[in-house]
């Protein structure tokens, strides 16, 4: 079983959920049914939540998705959930704090570009940054067929990402100039 966790508020500004449901549907079409998604986050927009449920039903994947309906700190997630993969929406290669939290906690983070206009600008990307749905589906298939090797590559790639959030001395000077101009 491949367990995907999506840390995001269910709200209009984060609406790439449909893409993920479609990925589950595509996999199911290929007889791959052992992929589940858990959406970890509060319901910010009730109508989007119900639309997502309806879409899942229409695509025949209702039993593959679930929602916590509330924000949960990574520390408070069960070990079973933590053993899964953490899907983070990105803008091309830009990653937000939820990605950092997953990486910092040594979880297996994977990234999905939420804005198709930037597909071409994603270059030299690590294995776990998916520029589009096709790459996302392909990664999931590899997680099934060659899990140990792909897991190792994901962990290695995430280790490199940790440092990108740290402030260099130059960054610190710039930030200080914002705070105390």
């Amino acid at each position: 079983m491949i367990k995907l966790n999506v840390i995001a508020r269910v709200d209009k500004d984060k609406n790439s959920f449909g893409d993920l449901l479609y990925a589950l549907h595509q996999l199911k079409q290929e007889q791959i049914t052992q992929v589940n998604i858990l959406f970890v986050g509060p319901i910010g927009n009730e109508s989007l939540y119900f639309e997502t449920l309806a879409l899942a039903q229409h695509l025949g994947i209702s039993s593959n998705i679930s929602f916590t309906k509330k924000a949960i700190l990574i520390d408070d997630l069960s070990e079973d959930i933590k053993s899964g993969y953490f899907v983070n929406f990105t803008i091309a290669d830009f990653m937000g704090y939820s990605a950092l939290e997953a990486i910092k906690n040594n979880l297996k983070a994977i990234f999905y570009n939420a804005d198709s206009q930037y597909i071409e600008s994603i270059k030299d990307k690590p294995i776990n940054l998916c520029a589009d749905l096709k790459e996302f589906i392909s990664l999931i298939k590899r997680l099934i067929s060659e899990k140990p090797a792909v897991d190792a590559e994901i962990i290695k790639s995430n280790e490199r990402l940790k440092d990108t959030f740290r402030l260099s001395n130059n960054d610190k000077r710039t930030l200080l100039s914002f705070i105390k101009p």
């Binding site: 959030f165 402030l167 960054d171 930030l175």
Partner: peptide, 28 residues
């Protein structure tokens, strides 16, 4: 907090952008 925002703001607002635009990464 990312370079794509700068491109998006310039593309959308063009000459209406009179303020300073700065880029600063998300950090810990």
């Amino acid at each position: 907090i990312n370079r794509y925002q700068i491109n998006e703001l310039i593309a959308h607002y063009g000459h209406a952008l009179k303020c300073n635009l700065r880029l600063f990464k998300l950090f810990i």
